[in-house]
Amino acid sequence: MSQKQIAGVTIDVNDEGYMTNHAQWNRDVAAALAKEEGIDLTEGHWKVLDFIDKDFKEKSAVPGMRRMNKVGGIETKELYSLFPNGPIKKATKIAGYPKPVSCV
């Protein structure tokens, strides 16, 4: 566990860079975290981030790929093109939630 300065605020992160206190998250933090992953956030990215946010608040878990498809209305292809090389992992990190623990 460590702290880091980003987008003008201090955030707590674990050793993999996932935020451990969601209260410290805001949209500017998200944009800065996305930059670190080499991603410029667009409307398409926000659709994914907002769904993760909404779903996590409901279920206390990061949605898996199928839930993204069926409930979030986000297609697999779209997700992989928005967040290449590990879409849910990356999107979750940017959304300020813990690393997904589901296998699917």
Partner: peptide, 17 residues
């Protein structure tokens, strides 16, 4: 636990590259 049926799973993997 959201494991898709075989057909849907194959499609998901293919869409994922």
């Amino acid at each position: 636990i959201d494991i898709p049926p075989v057909g849907e799973f194959v499609e998901m993997i293919h869409d994922a590259g």
